[in-house]
Lab assay of single mutants.
Amino acid sequence: MTYRVRIENADGEVVTIEISADELREKGLTLEELLPPNARIVEVEEVEP
């Protein structure tokens, strides 16, 4: 499974990243732990691999 994640950074700019569930598991991280300081998740969407 892959996630498309929209993130708002500290400057108010919204960027989109895609990350797979396998990648998260391998790194032992959650989506929140990948965020840079002062950023927030705006939207998470599951996409087909």
Rank of each mutant, 00 (worst) to 15 (best):
A39M: 08
L29W: 07
E46A: 12
N38H: 11
E8H: 06
V42G: 01
M1V: 15
T16S: 05
E46L: 15
E48S: 13
N38A: 05
L29S: 05
E18T: 11
V42F: 05
I17N: 00
L35M: 07
L35H: 01
I17W: 10
E48F: 15
I7T: 02
K27R: 13
R25H: 10
V15L: 11
L31R: 00
E48Y: 15
R25G: 04
I19M: 03
N9V: 11
M1G: 10
L34I: 12
E18W: 15
R40H: 07
V42M: 11
P36W: 07
E45F: 12
G12E: 01
E32A: 11
D11K: 10
A21K: 07
R40L: 05
V47R: 05
E45T: 13
V14A: 05
T16F: 11
L34G: 03
R6Y: 10
E26Q: 12
G28Y: 03
V42A: 02
A39H: 10
V47H: 06
E18N: 08
N9D: 06
T16C: 12
T30Q: 07
A39L: 05
I17Y: 07
L35Y: 03
E8Q: 12
M1Q: 08
R4H: 09
G28M: 06
I17H: 02
A10Y: 09
I41H: 02
L29Y: 06
E26S: 12
E23N: 05
E33A: 11
V44P: 01
V15W: 15
L29K: 10
E33F: 05
V44C: 12
G28H: 07
T2R: 15
R4M: 07
R6T: 15
R25K: 12
R25Y: 09
V15I: 14
T16G: 01
R4G: 00
E46D: 04
E8W: 09
E13M: 12
V47S: 05
E46Q: 10
T2D: 14
D22N: 11
E45L: 13
V14S: 06
L29D: 01
I17D: 00
R25N: 09
E13R: 13
V5L: 05
L24A: 02
M1C: 14
T30F: 04
P36C: 03
D11P: 03
A39G: 07
V5R: 00
R6M: 13
L34D: 01
L24G: 01
E45H: 09
D11A: 11
P36I: 03
R6P: 00
V42D: 01
I41A: 02
D22T: 11
E48I: 14
